[in-house]
Design a binder for these strands. Structure first.
Lengths: 229, 229
DNA sequence: AGTCATTGTGTCTAAAATACACTATGAGTT
DNA sequence: AACTCATAGTGTATTTTAGACACAATGACT
């Protein structure tokens, strides 16, 4: 069955930049294309938006189909519509970015045949289409946003140590932070709750585990509080 | 002539939230629709994206056609794609926001037959489609961005007084600012150049006219400087 | 000469950011 | 048992930045 319109229409896709954090490095999830164009090249997970499907739903559906990831933090990034961005025809892509904790969303066996793999951010292969530009835009957004919204927690397991949190911020912001000042500031927000538990199986003094108090953050935010780092 | 595709496609539009500032108030430019759906209702200027046209070009073309505005500050805002946002069919809209100085882009005789008018932000009519949501998103973006990027200048004439600038910030941020502290901070950035001229035709002491030093800002920005207010 | 609206200017105080170094813990090694 | 190693955990003094605050200067208009 075919569909006919009076004027030509661009096709519409979604692409997702999935960031993962894993004791040490910030990574991005890529899939290897098995179809033309750019068959064999690495690309961001994504695909065509179905008719009568919201953009965010399309992004979540494609993520689930191509990478198995569900119920994760996902936010719209930017829309890319340069006419020559796809060699076939004019395809407009609405990009999203997602944050996951690698500890809680394990090795990502792609549910579908395509190969999916995590790449260190400073060691990514050449990407298909304009996906390098999309990735660069996503990195810039993550760096900018992590300072004034508590989204960094999405990259950590639900219980984490202050050391892990500081390390995450150092990797994302690409700058060294002072331990005492960092702890003072982050605990000063009152948004971290000491779970009473401590780290297990580490070859050094075990640290306390904290969790982020989402409820409290939402309450404070309504009253004009803003998160800063 | 018609165009046929294997799968149904959503249509693609752009919509523009044009903010104008005029000695006193922040306004938004709306047009009155002359076609169904929502004929007679006010709406954001915008229209269908042509095939092989970039999104930003489409926004600039529609702005020129519907409002006569050209060569203005324009930035992508967000994409709206809820399936029921247009009663006819699934139409995805990429929204942009624009900033103009009303002093330099005068009363806006719409070039095309449609009526265009500036509305005070706290006195806007009911809008067609989901344009109220788009407008709210644009206001939030403007408020957020004005603090850490020097985009406020786009709303003023190229030469302006510190009083006008302070007033603009007060209106956008909806808070009162201390005159001496404001001047100290804004002059402290080194990004304002005293043109040596002074205001004409005012019924009180005439103020110095400044201009924003765009070149210097771009240089500083490369070296990691960030604008704060 | 006086009124009016707005410009333009400096200091003191409070708050926040930054710099900085040692002891504590517990696993692993000898 | 003693030692090494890696990381956790803690406080103060200094510098920087933000915020409060009041009055004289200008120039058009009456």
């Amino acid at each position: 069955m075919t569909h006919t319109y009076q004027y030509p229409r661009a096709a519409l896709t979604v692409d997702c930049v999935v960031f993962g954090f894993d004791e040490g490095d910030l990574k991005v999830l890529l899939i290897q294309r098995d179809l033309e164009p750019f068959s064999g090249k690495w690309a961001l997970p994504g695909g065509f938006v179905h008719i009568k499907e919201s953009l965010e739903n399309a992004a979540r559906r494609e993520l689930a189909e191509e990478t198995g990831l569900k119920n994760i933090f996902l936010e719209q990034l930017y829309s890319f519509g340069a006419p020559e961005r796809d060699p076939r025809e004019h395809i407009v892509s609405v990009a999203y970015y997602a944050l996951v904790s690698l500890a809680e969303h394990r090795p990502q066996a792609a549910t579908d045949a395509r190969q999916a793999a995590w790449f260190n951010l400073d060691d990514t292969p050449d990407l298909a289409f304009d996906h390098e530009e999309i990735l660069a835009t996503a990195i810039a957004r993550l760096r900018g946003k992590v300072r004034y919204e508590p989204i960094g927690f999405e990259l950590l397991p639900s219980r984490f140590t202050l050391g892990q949190l500081q390390h995450l911020y150092q990797v994302v912001l690409e700058e060294k932070l002072d331990k005492r000042n960092f702890r003072k500031k982050i605990l000063g927000t009152g948004l971290l709750v000491d779970t009473g538990e401590i780290q297990q199986d580490v070859a050094h003094r075990a640290a306390r585990l904290y969790r982020f108090d989402e409820r409290k953050y939402q309450q404070l935010r309504k009253r004009g509080f803003s998160f800063w780092l």
